[in-house]
Design a protein around this nucleic acid. Structure first.
Lengths: 363, 363
DNA sequence: TTGTAGGCGTTATCAG
DNA sequence: CTGATAACGCCTACAA
């Protein structure tokens, strides 16, 4: 048992250990920190003294001197969303492997919270940041971090306005594949459900030739809408604004409400592509509410391979991405940057694949 | 990682601002930190200079002087487990309200990882810790933190060996209620499934009167077994070791395997109580594998009101606790301690209630 | 009201 | 190989 002579008081410092071992602070420091050379017997005496006093180094003071904190920041929407929780897990694992500590911020897709998170991280002298930016256009705070020399890696959402690394999936292709799959099953009237913040201003437009297009910053959801439209175009299937539903907030009840409206259309879709995990849950619940049998009366392809999608009846066909790997990859790239790698910024595209289960059938 | 004198990139300090504004560092410091008195025109000059230089305070240096870091630690099993993710969310929210930053550690129920987490947190001069201890008996590292004067609050699991606050539910009562509910429906042969680490050494014993008992440290799972047994006893229903299944690891496949064995018994139970969310998922999957209709052929009561339990068919009857509130409560108590409150340690019992849906029927 | 001069704990530098 | 000392950036007695 280590004695605590001054229990509850100031914790012992190198100077205390030095005094106890009857050496200079410099020698004690060297013996404790394994730097420089110390005679073996002295080293031992110091280490014994340290153990006796219950010494543990003060990382704050160390950071003070070194300028680095051996910690990184992770800024994401919400940890109770499984996507972010898992991505964060990946970031944490890599950080620990590197001997770094991650600092987590939930910003709930609020820009002011994100700005504040970046500010706090900079004040904390963090060594790097992984961020899923709320906005891909309003990024002054991210720029500021970069100007300070703090490396940044974008996760899930890249920004064309900023020259930094990003780790994403090819959202357009993933959506195109999913919708092409439904088209291949014979569906021609396919609904789309997506959680898109209207503040980011994506707009549905009807082209001269009657086809629908989407304009807006390349956020994941918007890109998925593009992929959906591209697949329809390629098969000359109809696209119509009434089949495309955005739910304004990132919450399941809103998504369910939109999905219900979609299914209540005079001529309802025979299939629905839900472009994110919130919409997927909303669509599933709406189908149940309307007693629309899946896949008999309604085919459904969802997004994100969450636990529950394989547990429900029928198990859902979904586009699966790997937030764990994305988080790991983002962190790995961040550490390359922290170590001084200055190759040009890169857009790292991770795989997403369609996991076919039983929620879509031939029409 | 900013090495020491990094040419001109070094971020500006109070001294730089002072020079720019042509005042002393003290005045600049006062103007920037809103303490002491500064003449208005000077304050303005300083703030302009700060803005011009892009000054932001160095929290590390501030901590160095003040001795506190305005940050707390959260040590839990695994953020990708929704229970911990949500609890962590609660802790984070309260911390931010208090102007503190939370530092998160995943320890995956590994004691060495937990010890290391505590060590790192102490070195980082953290102001307090919320921890879901892996072990309720091997707690030397937690003691050490307390001896250092760092307040600790235990979450989910209390320890009788340590005089600290804990935030828990009444696991025994919750399990008793759940099983009593099944007994009330006429079930007499009720299986139990629980994820218990054998390393924590709970033992099933058969008493002289033929009844089954459980011995072991009061972890949540063990307490739930106690509650299960107590309910059976109170109704003179049979208890038998073959009806009680522990899965060794905290993973769904193991739970499912145990559940399958349980359902394959020559005389299988008519109802199952799954004592945690992992077991609940395992039991549900096993029932499906055996084509045992719920609740027609098998009644199931699970634990933890996760999203998916309401989404499956039939929606599951579960014991619900609120990890969000538990996390918030733990953090609130922690801040009381940080502020110096030294009332005796308390065991804060949060509510858990049975949410009746459709997975249990009359036998 | 403003300025000067330490000191927090660690580590790097330089001299013995 | 060891020891004294000077930073790192901020804050606060204390002095002016």
């Amino acid at each position: 048992m280590a004695e605590h002579p001054k229990s509850g008081r100031r914790s012992p410092t190198v100077a205390d250990v030095a005094r106890e071992a009857d050496v200079s602070v410099a020698t004690a420091g060297r013996a404790l920190g394994n730097y420089g050379r110390v005679r073996d017997d002295l080293r031992e005496r110091v280490q014994e003294a340290a153990a006796r006093l219950g010494y543990s180094p003060n990382v704050v003071a160390r950071s003070m001197r070194s300028g680095g904190t051996r910690s990184i920041g992770f800024v994401g929407a919400d940890i109770s969303n499984p996507y972010f929780a898992t991505a964060m897990r990946g970031v944490c694992d890599v950080a620990r492997e590197e001997g770094y500590e991650p600092l987590l911020f939930n910003v709930d897709d609020r820009l002011d919270a994100e700005r504040n998170a970046i500010k706090v991280l900079l004040e904390k002298q963090i060594d790097g940041i992984v961020v899923s930016p709320t906005s891909v256009t309003d990024i002054g705070h991210l720029r500021q971090a970069r100007e300070r020399g703090v490396p940044i890696v974008l996760l899930d959402r890249g920004s064309p306005m900023m020259d930094v690394d990003s780790v994403v999936i090819d959202n357009e292709a993933a959506a195109r594949d999913a919708v092409t799959y439904l088209l291949g099953l014979g569906h021609r009237r396919i609904g789309l459900l997506a959680a898109i913040d209207p503040a980011e201003g994506p707009q549905l437009v009807t082209e001269d030739d009657g086809r629908v297009g989407v304009r807006g910053a390349p956020r994941p959801s918007v890109d998925r809408v593009r992929g959906y439209l591209a697949a329809l175009d390629a098969h000359q299937a109809e696209s119509s604004p009434e089949l495309i539903r955005f739910c304004p907030l990132d919450a399941v009840p809103h998504a369910e409400a939109e999905a219900r409206e979609l299914l209540s259309l005079p001529e309802p879709p025979t299939a629905v592509f839900a472009a994110d995990n919130v919409s997927t849950q909303g669509a599933f619940m709406a189908a149940r509410h309307h007693r629309r049998a899946i896949p008999g009366e309604l085919s459904l392809v969802g997004f994100d391979d969450l636990d529950w999608t394989a547990l429900v009846e029928p198990p859902l066909t979904v586009v699966a991405q790997s937030p764990l790997d994305m988080g790991r990859t983002a962190a790995q790239r961040l550490f390359q940057r922290i170590r001084g790698d200055d190759r040009p910024a890169e857009r790292i595209v991770m795989p997403a694949k369609l996991v076919v289960r039983s929620s879509a059938a031939r029409h």
